[in-house]
């Protein structure tokens, strides 16, 4: 396919490209990396998983993932999708942890209290009602 003799690819590249080309190569490489980081969720956006108040796992909030944590009442599933996480428990009386639904903003928590499992978002965007520091209920 390529006519002519094969030289060292590097030298060919340098000969074939203009300074403008090389600038574009660099800029687009940076852009792609930045896009990758951006889509992974905001920098530092992580999910912490606690079992009986001990940190048992940390996971980035990007991409898709799911695994099982051994809770006091049986397995609890932790799911991550598109920068958010949720709990799905199958053996908890009131399913409050599951009913909390997807969390993705800094400080948000979902917990199954009888299972002893808690997940928390660290870093990432602050919640929409960040103007409240705490709620008495």
């Amino acid at each position: 396919m390529s006519p002519g003799r094969w030289r060292l690819p590097w030298r060919v590249l340098v000969r074939a490209s203009t300074p403008g080309d090389r600038g574009l190569m660099l800029a687009s490489a940076v852009g792609i990396v930045a896009l990758g980081l951006l889509l992974e969720g905001p920098p530092g956006s992580r999910l912490q998983v606690f079992r009986d108040n001990r940190l048992v796992a940390t996971h980035a909030l990007g991409g898709t993932a799911g695994w099982s944590v051994d809770g006091r009442l049986g397995p609890v599933i932790v799911e991550i999708r598109q920068g958010q996480a949720r709990l799905r428990e199958y053996r908890s009386p009131r399913l409050i942890g599951t009913r909390t639904g997807w969390i993705g903003r800094a400080g948000q928590v979902a917990a199954c209290v009888p299972c002893g499992v808690l997940i928390r978002v660290e870093g990432g965007p602050s919640p929409a009602d960040a103007d409240l520091d705490a709620v008495s209920e």
Partner: peptide, 15 residues
């Protein structure tokens, strides 16, 4: 006006 040659244009086109 970026002075792009075949490599640069090909890169743009591919992206």
């Amino acid at each position: 006006p970026l002075g792009l040659g075949p490599v640069g244009l090909s890169l743009l086109a591919a992206l």
